[in-house]
Design a protein around this nucleic acid. Structure first.
Length: 605
RNA sequence: GCGCGAUUAGCUCAGCUGGAUAGAGCGCUGGCCUCCGGAGCCAGAGGUCACAGGUUCGAAUCCUGUAUCGCGUACCA
């Protein structure tokens, strides 16, 4: 039970006994200014029209509050705010209960969540661009589990698309076997980029030749006409499509190449996931569904949901299907091959039947909003949102938890030259290197292996926190110095707060349980409230898919703690027992909260 | 053209089912270690919350319009 929920329950009762039964009661929230007390309820503002009525309603609610030892005092202010000041015993007791509970005092909600995140494309290096989905998705995974949900984390690899056709063409055309031996994924990526370059150049030539008016009529026909005229037929893109189709038909040579490319990428991905502490319950890439795709599309056609259009098969939409669905969802190309919309639908079917989830969440960047809108609408038309192994069920809730683009501050970094340095491995290495330098400077006395371990935790944590502390939906700018900074609002600040607590607990030389906390000093009060608030914020963070809410609260705790050290002596003070317990609760909370973000916290640093 | 999103301090960003005097980091100015860890703390300067209307006790937050920017717009993912 958090303070907010306990207070909300009290207000609910009071609202009923005051004669407002049946009214919607907004939850009690923290005040934004300590002068107004610790928490406030704004119910009364909705219970009257005039100022007098609101004040009067507030007064009646206050008078109707059940007896309790949580509220020390409360007052009705201006337009009808009800401000609560909490009793020291009440808040201390609440914190102790939270700290000693198996769930860390986080309110528990039931449910099953399937979360689709990271999902890198095979044949591309793991780039900083993949950082966001991976880190945000992993945090959401952990946060939901903390709320008592069963979570299925699925890495939906991009391992079955047209990029393989491109790669196969490029491999057959331009491969450098020696380079592949040395660094497989590097060579694969080179081939992929080279192909795109050549195909783009060709496209540009064709477009330049096209008749604008004809283009509007029928793009494909016009492009084909020009390509033929230029004797480019088949174009590089045509050849890639052909190889893709062959692969999807099970051509042994292409399958063998495909396996080769997938294997090279997976080795790199696995290493990165291990280093970042990211785990999945499933790694079912697009290819996992390859054998069902053709039958599924036929089924959708038979059901009347999908239909032929311009030689392809699409799922069309009407206004009744929702807004922003101007184009149909393409599920089979003219040449018979499948697209990612097809695999996405097959994936939904599989997830519904395997896990019976309440929610399916996709942590994918904002540019795919249109795509997911289509996929979700198509899934509903197909009845996939209610699919079950037997019996009725509520429709699953689909969510595209999109995130903004990561950009580079410095144009030079985003350039080809520096493109290589934006590999995630390089970013992590750079971060760990910088952390190592600081460890050498500040904690040279520690043993070598511990210094290395600390640098790794700090470096990886810094990169993760840089992303997680920002609102996922904002576009974020990656700047080496700012993103890898080790002071200010960074992972280090949080880790340091934890390490200092641990240091004091070590110096105490005894086991310190979280009990006997007496809140007297103003900073003790602030700290206890901040620690309680962490529990309140977790579900809000889960519901809105915003790990930055947790990050924010951790920062608040750490900054209160930094002031606490100045004013409140722990060891040897009259309040030693209580303060040690508080320090213990803080250390545990920081470790717990950082854990929600997938960030480790060293004992000392 | 249509759709989605954004616009808050010099810079990078919080603040989101409407709440009280709009916050943080970086940078800048000035202070603070005889004391459990200074990877820190305190104070200060810095704002027309893009603009114009609207809704109401109350708007950075909701609605409408405008401007600017970004992204998307069927045979890539």
């Amino acid at each position: 039970m958090t303070l907010a929920s306990a207070l909300t329950a009290l207000v609910n009762q009071a609202v009923d006994t005051a004669g407002f039964a049946g009214q919607a009661v907004p939850p009690v929230v923290p005040t934004n200014n300590p002068e107004h007390g610790d928490y406030q309820s704004n119910v009364a503002l909705r219970l009257g029209r005039s100022l007098d009525e609101k004040i009067e309603a507030a007064g009646r609610i206050v008078a109707s509050l059940p007896a309790n030892d949580l509220i020390e005092s409360c007052e009705v202010v201006k337009p009808g705010f009800i401000n609560f000041r909490l009793s020291p015993v009440g808040m201390a007791r609440t914190l102790e209960a939270a700290a000693n509970s198996a769930t860390n005092g986080v309110p528990q909600h039931g449910g099953t969540l399937v979360i689709d995140f990271s999902s890198p494309n095979i044949a591309k290096r793991f780039h900083v661009g993949h950082l966001r989905s991976t880190v945000i998705g992993d945090a959401i995974h952990r946060i939901y589990e903390a709320c008592g949900w069963r979570v299925v984390a699925d890495n939906h690899l991009g391992d079955w698309g047209t990029q393989f056709g491109k790669l196969i063409v490029a491999w057959n055309e331009w491969r450098d076997e020696l380079a592949y031996e040395e660094d497989p994924i590097h060579e694969v990526q080179r081939l992929y980029q080279h192909f795109n370059q050549v195909a783009d150049d060709e496209d540009a030539v064709i477009k330049a030749q096209c008749d604008e008016d004809a283009l509007k009529e029928d793009v494909v026909a016009e492009m084909t006409r020009v390509a033929k005229e230029l004797r480019l037929f088949p174009t590089w893109s045509d050849r890639a499509r052909e190889e893709t189709a062959k692969l999807q038909r099970g051509d042994p040579a292409n399958i063998a190449l495909w396996e080769k490319f997938v294997d090279a990428s997976m080795r790199e991905f696995d290493a990165i996931y291990a280093r970042m502490g990211v785990e999945f319950d499933e790694t079912l890439g697009e290819s996992a569904y390859r054998n069902e795709l053709q039958d599924l599309v036929d089924e959708w056609v038979a059901a009347g949901v999908a239909e032929e259009s311009q030689g392809a098969i699409v799922i069309p939409f009407t206004k009744a299907d929702g807004k922003g669905l101007s184009a149909p969802l393409l599920v089979r190309k003219r040449d018979g091959s499948a697209l990612y919309g097809t695999t996405d639908l097959a994936t939904i079917k599989h997830r519904m039947l395997s896990w019976a989830p309440d929610r399916i969440v996709y942590v994918v960047d904002s540019r795919q909003q249109g795509h997911f809108r289509q996929v979700f609408a198509a899934a509903k038309k197909l009845g996939y949102d209610r699919l079950s192994n037997g019996g009725e069920r509520e429709p699953v809730h689909f969510e595209h938890a999109w995130f903004g683009t990561l950009r580079f501050a410095d144009g030079a970094i985003a350039s080809t030259r520096a493109g290589a340095t934006a590999n995630l491995v390089d970013v992590l290495d750079q971060a760990v290197g910088r952390a190592r330098a600081v460890v050498e400077q500040k904690s040279d006395h520690l043993p070598e292996d511990e210094k290395a371990a600390i640098a790794e935790i700090v470096g990886v944590g810094t990169v993760k926190y840089f992303d997680l502390r920002q609102n996922p939906q904002s576009d974020i700018t990656f700047d080496w110095d700012e993103s890898l900074a080790l002071n200010g609002n960074t992972a280090v600040y949080l880790m340091y707060a934890h390490a200092r607590c641990r240091s004091i607990l070590r110096n105490a030389e005894r086991d310190v349980p979280v009990s006997g906390i007496v809140v007297s000093h103003a900073l003790e009060r602030e700290l206890v409230l901040a620690l309680n608030r962490l529990r309140e914020v977790v579900w809000e963070s889960a519901e809105t898919y915003r790990p930055n809410l947790v990050a924010d609260q951790l920062y608040t705790i750490a900054s209160v703690l930094a002031r606490f050290w100045n004013d409140c002596r722990v060891l040897g003070s009259d309040e030693e027992g209580s303060r040690l317990a508080l320090v213990r609760a803080t250390a545990d909370s920081m470790r717990f909260g950082l854990g929600l973000l997938g960030i480790d916290a060293p004992e000392r640093m």
